[in-house]
Design a protein around this nucleic acid. Structure first.
Lengths: 130, 130
DNA sequence: GTTGATTTTGATAATCATTCTCACTTCTGT
DNA sequence: ACAGAAGTGAGAATGATTATCAAAATCAAC
């Protein structure tokens, strides 16, 4: 594992939400942990290729990264604060397999994310209900 | 509905797969159906905002567009030829709702796509099995 | 059907994330 | 210590998407 990969993994471990490459770059600035933007991108490519980091795309197309568990899972993401919960894959798994089989598709994989407002942000939005 | 929206919708209707803005731009070239790239993007924004066209992101971040049914649905997409099948939303719906409720999330929506190899491409890949 | 306002369009420049280049440094094994 | 491989940094290059702004088309009343 390279120095940049270690620092990026450490940084992502402190966050429960997804972070963009630019955010990681800025977050690592100073305190002797400087890395060029190119290095960040290269390290993220290696981390995602090896499955240590998950990627997904924000609606504007920017890539977001997160350190996740090894097992197959999905995400429940707060639209307001970004807080992310890992969801075990089981439920969708069966659905995907049966749908694919019904249409003659093989060698499948799937993606599934749920977006919403978490309890904390929901309360903040309507603080003093009268 | 503007002229560009009509032509883009017509073009997307002829395809069963997703198309990028650039592909639409090239596909509409010639035959009096010319539109500037900026116009294509603006029309696609309106079409997706009104729900007439679905968007998803290719793994490299490029946006892909498709004319779809009105009802909530998901996609089964061939990784090789791009052929896309619409899947009714029912199955995932329940899963998303129960997961969200269990974690105190409100006001949710979700995305789910299945990627695989369709029967046609699967046969082509291994044509003469001996 | 002409006037005037609003909307759409086109060509081009600007933006911004991501990748490429290349020279330099750091690691690895022997 | 040495050679070769891999990692790094600064900045240039790429490419999709958006912004700009003036010209053209559309529309609504009179």
């Amino acid at each position: 594992m390279t120095k940049s990969e270690v620092e990026i993994a450490k940084f992502l471990d402190t966050k429960s939400s997804f972070a963009s490459a630019q955010e990681i770059f800025l977050g690592l600035k100073g305190e002797e942990k400087n890395f060029g933007l190119a290095t960040i991108y290269r390290a993220l490519q290696r981390l995602t290729a090896s499955g240590e980091v998950d990627v997904l795309r924000r609606s504007d197309g920017e890539a977001l990264y997160r350190k996740c568990g090894e097992e197959h899972h999905h995400h429940l993401i707060c639209k307001t604060c970004g807080k992310t919960v890992e969801i075990p894959g089981a439920g969708v798994e069966d659905w995907a397999n049966s749908v694919a089989a019904r249409h003659g598709f093989e060698d499948i994989h799937h993606s599934a994310e749920i977006y919403g407002t978490c309890a904390g942000c929901s309360n903040q939005a309507k603080p003093n209900r009268r």
